[in-house]
Amino acid sequence: MRKVLPASILVVMLGLYVALSGAVWKQQERARLEVPAGYVIPSKFSRVLALGQQGLLSDFLFLKTITFVGGRIGSGMPLSEDDWRFVEHSLDVVTDLDPYFKDPYVLTEGLLAWDAGLIAEANQLLAKGMAYRTDDWQLPFFIGFNQFYFLKDFTAATESLMVAARLPGSPSYLKTLAARIGYYGDKSKTALLFLQELVAEADDPLMRARLQKRLQVLEGSVVMEEALDRFVEDQGRNPEKLVELIETGYLEKFPVEPYGGTWIFNKEGRVFSTSRFVDGFVPQEKD
């Protein structure tokens, strides 16, 4: 008898707890999306607060940053400018706490440069990493890519790539790539070669999935640009619309645009998409 009462209370409590726990986790999931990005304690302070566990704290902060971005993207909420600032600060603090930590630099390249468009900030972070990871050819490679692809500064890009090429373990074609930029700087094919390299180097599944999507879209652009080049060579003029390429048989069909935009081209013979190769960014269609 003396054990029956506590045992039955325990059973009731267990049932109650399981229900509550489920509700609480759901609640937290909602709360996480509602809460603004928050604020990262500057590394000056967090270094002290880490109580000697800077490495662990940097790991935790990094995980938190990934989950934050992942949660937003997973639920289809676009990240606001403040959110991106938070990500940038987090990555800055993470790399301050442990400047040798590679993952945040990969994330910097993948998120800050590509999604947030914070190119200057991304390059600054990567340059910080270069000061510590002196043997890592990928960091100058990332910088070079940003200079080439986003900033269109081909001279600087060539220099960065040459720095990367001199570092141990760098693929042999980096030199070729650097030379190629000089001639065909502004072509999707060059970007594609860059990106293929990025995908090959990305071990992180999270990054990989996103890079692969970009690779797909760039491959599309390359197919279109090559068709466009042939058209211009044969006809001696630019087409009125891209559809002309299909009508004249230079292209079988438009490649899939995984971001949902429509293909457009400019006078220099480059093909883009109205999505700007970013999820959820299709302004022309909305208008």
């Binding site: 996480r32 989950t67 992942g70 997973g74 999270l206």
Partner: peptide, 20 residues
């Protein structure tokens, strides 16, 4: 203190897409 981050990370779409 950390479980929430880990659980939501593992549940997030990125992670499941890649089947890690």
């Amino acid at each position: 203190v950390t479980i929430e981050e880990v659980v939501f990370y593992l549940k997030s779409d990125w992670a499941t897409q890649e089947r890690v």
